[in-house]
């Protein structure tokens, strides 16, 4: 396997290991990876945090899942259409193939995760950017903390049913975790990120 394939596989394994070993109700984990924008208009070598990989676990509580997908019918139709198109794109345009997963409700957290794949952040901007620039942990717990943070990504997360969002800076990017439950800050999670995502461990 190529080196990039290797990195991709291990990134996925590390994100999965992080969520599965944390033992709390994390809904997803994303690794925002740094890259360098050499075509910046200012001519600077600008650091950008873009999608590296993500692991979506989902909500275990079925009632919560139900509650988190109560978007209006038009919005649901839009989400299902996007999922159908993406499924067709990934499967090489095998249009017409019926797939039951295309007609299932797309929950708010699934949608938030999916939309995240299209996003990137300049260094210092947004939740991941701020975490990376200052090499610090941002832990927002409780819907009030998400909306009160003044950060658009956190506000969006709250709208899509998240109650906890965490960004932990690592060597080559930022690990973001989100949950539809309220999860208190723990050094255990930060230690896990450190051991999984920093090479000096």
């Amino acid at each position: 396997p190529s080196l990039s394939q290797f990195n991709e596989d291990t990134l996925q394994q590390r994100l999965q290991a992080l969520i599965e070993s944390a033992g709390e109700g994390w809904t997803y984990a994303i690794f925002w990876q740094i890259s360098h924008d050499f075509e910046s208009p200012t001519g600077d070598n600008t650091v950008v945090l873009g999608w590296g990989d993500g692991y979506y676990k989902g909500e275990e509580d079925k009632e919560k899942k139900k509650k988190s997908s109560n978007s209006n019918p038009a919005e649901q139709e839009h989400r299902k259409r996007v999922i159908r198109e993406l499924n067709s794109l990934i499967s090489g345009g095998g249009g017409g193939v019926s797939d039951e997963s295309n007609d299932e409700e797309v929950t708010d957290t699934e949608w938030f995760f999916l939309v995240s794949m299209t996003q990137s952040f300049a260094n210092g901007v947004g939740l991941p950017g701020e975490s990376f620039l200052n090499s610090r942990v941002i832990w927002l717990s409780g819907s009030g903390a998400l909306t009160g943070s003044g950060c658009e990504r956190a506000s969006q997360g709250q709208i899509y049913g998240l109650q906890t969002m965490v960004c932990i800076a690592a060597e080559n990017g930022v690990v973001e975790l989100g949950s539809s439950e309220v999860i208190s800050q723990s050094s255990d999670l930060m230690d896990k990120v450190n051991s999984l995502f920093n090479s000096n461990n």
Partner: peptide
């Protein structure tokens, strides 16, 4: 940056595949 869209495509394929698995086991 060519690696970025590739990473997204792989993530997307994995997400859709796991979604199917979740829905089938529900």
């Amino acid at each position: 940056i060519p690696s970025v869209p590739q990473a997204r495509k792989a993530s997307l394929a994995r997400f859709l595949e796991k979604r199917k698995e979740r829905l089938m086991s529900a």
